[in-house]
Write a protein that binds this DNA or RNA. Sequence first.
DNA 1: CCCTAGCGTATTGGCGCCAATAATTGCGCC
DNA 2: GGCGCAATTATTGGCGCCAATACGCTAGGG
Lengths: 213, 213
Amino acid sequence: MARPPRPRRALAAEIAAAIRGGAYRAGEWLRQVDLEERFGATRFDIRAALAELALRQTVEHVPNRGFRVATPDRQRIRDMLAVRALLEVEAALTALPQLDAAALRLLEAKADAFDRAVAEGTPASQSATNLDFHDTLYGFSPNRALVEVATETRDRARLWPLVLWPSMQSLRRSAEGHREILAALRAGDAARVAASVRSHILGSAANQPVEEG
Amino acid sequence: MARPPRPRRALAAEIAAAIRGGAYRAGEWLRQVDLEERFGATRFDIRAALAELALRQTVEHVPNRGFRVATPDRQRIRDMLAVRALLEVEAALTALPQLDAAALRLLEAKADAFDRAVAEGTPASQSATNLDFHDTLYGFSPNRALVEVATETRDRARLWPLVLWPSMQSLRRSAEGHREILAALRAGDAARVAASVRSHILGSAANQPVEEG
DNA sequence: CCCTAGCGTATTGGCGCCAATAATTGCGCC
DNA sequence: GGCGCAATTATTGGCGCCAATACGCTAGGG
């Protein structure tokens, strides 16, 4: 199926999504010919996309060997989570003074959407509605650069846990986290916002099965 | 002069350095043929490097027009500085518990080196020794990911102010800032470390000539 | 005299081919 | 029968050519 002319940048995201979705395992070599076929793109585009992903450390590049999916490192995941928490707490705090009643209603609706996705949605829709809640909140921050760095960092760290993500327990905890954040925002309590966002982010991974490699 | 086979990644940094050094002005179009000649690289490499810089928002890409140097936006610079402060304060704070007497001596030596560069060095050596001080400090942080994101963000934001950087006054202030940070580290006073790093970063740009465009 | 339309030129960017390099398999030797 | 070396094959990656596109200039018309 010859797809219509694919927007250049999208390809990298598409490959990243495929990796996230579990199409390729951690450490697995990505052969360019396979990718060509799978995504119906030219070799040139594939290479450009892979280079971009390598820059984002989604894949690892070994000269004359190729690209392979970056391997999760437990310590690094923890470190990344700490960075995420730092950035996202700040994003939430800077958003806080900008929130009016309408904004809070909007956020409530997003939280509802996530709840519904948890109850009856697919893992993909759960992930999407979850991100949507956070992005909506951070979108109110007047510091655009902060939001960009935060989402970038989140996307960079997000690769790993997605395969083992959909445990019902952690989903419920996430939903509760959203409610707690919302309550803190409504109260206008900065310290409480910081604490709730922080624990929401750190907690989302803390309850992951700690198997050793 | 045909240079020896240039390491791939270095080229992007080299171009970025050229932009930083003022070889190309903000908003100026970067013609690929010029870059080819200037850096003695093939068109292919130039293009890859430019794509990388575009991803880092050092240059802007306009399809079928080419690449131009990203234009500084005063608001964005402020925003970026806030992000830098956030990240680098955290890096310094996490480094703090790891510092022993030898580490403090090393940092003192780096601060001395910067002082010498301010007194008698070139702008390039001033910049290098300044970065070296910060990198050495952050290097003691156990959170590698944090340090990476911090230095990445710094390099991303660093493009703009360098042309107008070498005012003797701001250099002196930077040198003092290093001393203040060192003193706070020696005292083991976390709050003071945070405050000194923050004001060092925000201050380094606050005293910039605020001409309007 | 100014505005517009068309052409020529300069520049970018897509892509396919081929050389360089590493993995693999098969053969010979110990 | 096992091990090591060498030829074969698979895969990556460098690069130059050419089509696509935008810009500047000139000529013609209002």
